[in-house]
Amino acid sequence: MTILAAGTVAPQFTLHSTLDQSVALKEFRGRNVILAFYPADWSPVCSDQLALYNELLDEFARLNAQLLAISVDGVWSHAALARERKYHFPLLSDFEPKGEVARAYGVYNAQHGLAERALFVIDGDGVIRWSYLSPMGVNPGAAGIVNALEALPSNNIQKTLDAPARSAREPS
């Protein structure tokens, strides 16, 4: 199974975030999406990784990006984890059929029955712009995500708008 590479159209999905709420990728057209696949709720490395992303939600918003975290755990486990760790982003449940979305993105580990630890940055047109597969036990941090988001043309344009003096000298 090979992780989907930059330039690939991101496979569509609709997954439960809670028992009675679903999140569809297509809702985020026009915005950037960070997909963070992780192996399991409650395991220490994942929790550190998601705790870090939880601190960066303002930064992601500044880069016009929504974070969606995905594992094969059920919605009740997700709900308990989000409450305990005070996560302020959706945890999506790739539960039935198990791992279907992880498979579509090439990051399902059939031997362990878990999603791999993998990151995707998807642009506003629904195209994968960056992907990264981390060894399962290694927390990949957020540098790659921030760099990938900042490299998106839409965010470069935003930077130009934020710096009028510079854009006046360098008309685009």
Binding site: Q49, A51, L52, E59, N139, P140, G141, A142, A143, V146
Partner: peptide, 12 residues
């Protein structure tokens, strides 16, 4: 400090 750490790959 925090964002410099993020950009440096601090993961925890």
């Amino acid at each position: 400090d925090f964002m410099g750490g993020v950009r440096s790959g601090v993961n925890g």
